[in-house]
Amino acid sequence: MPRAWVLGDDIDTDALAPGRFMHRPVEELAANTLADIRPDFANAQPGDVIVAGRNFGAGSSREQAAQALVIRGIAGVVARSFAGIFYRNAINLGLPVLVGNPAVEDGAEVTLDIDNATLRHEAGETGLEPIPGFLLDMVHDGGLVPHLEKKFRGKA
């Protein structure tokens, strides 16, 4: 069962994509995402969900902050709010990002349903703000580039 990783407010792009790994292969960077604030995040499993507070992804415009979570197979991030550039990068790289404030404990078993915009957990389910229609298509396609690939192939 996938689990929730509950984090606080203002999780920044340096925590997600530490500067000292920026010139390293992105897989190595991804292995160290959140290491500075949650060393145990190294144990996160594909399908796990991040549940965070306000302003998730604050800081620089580096795409690697979202890419690291994609590489780690994180099913999505649910946060009370997102920093603007991070939100853009996440959608463009196919990482589901949904606004919401579910009351779940760290490590709780959860399932993120991005189509219905809900987070299911032991106590039931919490509704989230849905990802707007065409952005959801983009997320399903795996991000902007595969989305456009499909579009251009469709035309040809």
Binding site: E63, N89, V145
Partner: peptide, 8 residues
């Protein structure tokens, strides 16, 4: 925007 988005 970043490079991926600019390509789009």
């Amino acid at each position: 925007v970043g490079a991926t988005e600019m390509a789009g």
